[in-house]
Amino acid sequence: MTIIITIILLCGLVFFTGGSIGIIRFPDFYSRLHPAGKLDSAGLLFSMSAFALYTVQPFSLSALFTSVKIILIVVFVFITSPTAIHAIVDAGVRAGLKPWEKESNLK
């Protein structure tokens, strides 16, 4: 069981690493939102499911409640993170930021 939890946790860490590096590497802020918003929620899904698995280990009612709460955090983040991303994109569009494009497309 420990091995399974560690593997899931490592998957989550890989997604988090991808999200953090993507925020640094991508060229403009529209494309930065892609890794920032979604690789992070994927990493949250993986690491939270690892924690939920670990919490139910000695089974009891309160442990079950705690792990259901952890799953609820994931559900909440999956509902709200598209809304937050859309709010940021909308602010960018209204402020008049132009999306970055390739040189070849501009000609």
Partner: peptide
């Protein structure tokens, strides 16, 4: 929301 959740695409 489904479009935004699918990475690579964001609803503007």
């Amino acid at each position: 929301n489904s479009i935004t959740l699918t990475p690579g695409t964001i609803t503007v």
